[in-house]
Simulated assay, not measured.
Amino acid sequence: MQRTDVIKRTIAEVVEDRRKQLSPGQVFVDAFAEGGFDTRVDYDVTITDSLTSSRRKPRYPSRNMLKVVDLSRDPQEFYWHESPARPGDPAVDGADLRREAANHFHRSPIPPLHTTKAWVQVPDGLWDDPTSFAEFINYRLVVRLATAENVTILRGEGGLLTMPDIARLTDPGPFGSTILSACNEVEQNGSTADGLIINPADYYRLLGSGTLMRDVEENGVFIVRTRLVDPGTAIVGDFGHGALLFDAGRSMISFAEPPPGTFAEPGVALTAEIYERVVLNLPTCFFVVSL
């Protein structure tokens, strides 16, 4: 079974499990009934992974591309990673055909996790309707947090687009597409490109001008559309084996005073936090391509 199918099957299983659990919004509303505007709820899960979309056409977040390591349940201190051959390295048998044979192996401590934070302003009096208040938390605050999480994974400090080890690819070569050229390069490095992160403007342009997007997905590449990748570029890589998302496995929602400039007008505000960081095991198997 192709990885795209495995991901979608896994997501379906997660959806079924989550139907049996209280949503983040319901948990907060229950606490609010006792604590009022002093309410703070600490969750023992990452709440961006606790809700599924009700859209008929899903749009998956970047976290769904990555193997998540929940450090609260599977604690570890170190992770392994590789780096390519260096100038002046001695010759390695077979490296002319198998580039990865000349790689260097490393053990590094898990870096400090980043705090991802989001804010929403609660419409006046919405808290008087527990059902609406819970839905607002679930589908505005948690959704805003998921957008902030995309920033952390892609553009923030330590995000994929800030990593100098990820090569840039601008030549489509004989394939007529930098996306396909990158897929080939990943395989020439001994892995398989199983993920593509692309701006919606480019996705729909390519979808409307040919079969590339459909062909790539049918070939087992999981596609994430997000505006946080600059138009005219995309990330291609082996997300299944070449990257990890270290996750604290906990979250927080509370009422709080927002920093100046957060909203256009004063009002009651909620904030939410999660804690995570992406790392690469195989940086040679990722490319930022120019489309």
Rank of each mutant, 00 (worst) to 15 (best):
G173R: 09
G249C: 09
R225L: 09
L160H: 11
P58I: 07
G210P: 05
L71M: 02
I198G: 01
Q188D: 10
L244R: 13
M213T: 04
D128E: 15
S108T: 08
Y79T: 04
W127K: 00
I197Y: 06
R214G: 06
D194T: 02
T211Y: 14
P130M: 04
A182G: 12
M163P: 02
E157N: 12
L180F: 04
E100T: 00
G88T: 12
P87S: 10
V92D: 05
L97Y: 11
T170C: 00
E34F: 10
R250M: 14
F105E: 08
V45R: 15
C285S: 13
V142Q: 00
I137N: 02
S181D: 06
M65H: 04
P172W: 08
D38T: 13
R225T: 10
L282P: 00
A201H: 05
A243N: 13
N150R: 12
R19Q: 12
V27D: 02
V279S: 01
A148M: 09
P24E: 02
F105C: 11
A118K: 11
D96I: 12
G240L: 09
T262G: 02
Q188T: 05
P266R: 05
D30Y: 00
N64T: 02
T271Y: 11
Y43D: 06
K67P: 01
D128W: 03
L51M: 03
G156D: 13
L245W: 06
D128G: 03
L22M: 11
L71F: 08
D44N: 10
F286Q: 10
I179S: 02
A264N: 14
T147W: 08
K8A: 09
T192D: 04
L282R: 13
R86C: 02
A134L: 01
A118W: 11
S50C: 04
S132D: 01
T4S: 11
A182Q: 09
A193K: 05
L196V: 05
A269G: 03
I235N: 01
V14P: 00
L196P: 03
R40A: 14
V224L: 08
F286M: 07
D171P: 06
D128F: 10
A102I: 07
S23P: 04
P58L: 12
Q26R: 15
A33T: 02
E77T: 07
F287M: 07
V68S: 09
P164D: 13
P58D: 13
R205M: 10
N184K: 05
G35V: 12
G173D: 13
L160G: 08
F287G: 07
F78K: 12
L97S: 13
L180W: 01
G36W: 05
Y203A: 13
M65W: 06
D38H: 12
L145T: 10
W80G: 14
V221C: 08
H241S: 07
D44R: 01
V41N: 10
T52F: 03
P90K: 15
D44G: 01
H241W: 04
I274D: 05
R155V: 09
D74E: 14
G249S: 02
R227D: 14
A272P: 01
G220R: 00
R227E: 14
L97R: 15
T147E: 15
L245P: 04
C183D: 09
E276Y: 03
K57Q: 15
G125M: 06
T192A: 14
S23K: 03
R19H: 06
